[in-house]
């Protein structure tokens, strides 16, 4: 079975993130995790995991659920 290339991706501004992880809790594909390094505010920011995988699975659906939920407008969403 061949996977369809995903058409979306998100960019998290790690310095705007305050580590509430609401985005982590709402992402339907569990593609957001937590960074293991602190940002300048002292939070472990949320991190998009969709870039770390192989070419085939890179990205997400671009549904923007995370961005809608983010209290700090730290997420931008791109879709092809």
């Amino acid at each position: 079975m061949t996977k369809k290339r995903k058409k979306g991706r998100i960019v998290i501004d790690r310095e705007l993130c305050k580590g509430c992880y609401l985005c982590v809790s709402v992402c339907p594909d569990q593609l957001i995790g937590v960074s293991d390094s602190l940002n300048q505010k002292g939070y472990y920011p949320a991190e998009f995991k969709g870039n770390n995988t192989g070419e085939e699975e890179r990205g997400c659906t671009g549904c923007a659920t995370c961005a809608i939920t983010c209290p700090d407008v730290a997420i931008e969403v791109y879709r092809e």
């Binding site: 407008v73 931008e76 092809e80």
Partner: peptide, 9 residues
């Protein structure tokens, strides 16, 4: 070309 679908208002 990816389009921004969500950004700061």
């Amino acid at each position: 070309m990816a389009k921004k679908v969500f950004e700061r208002p």
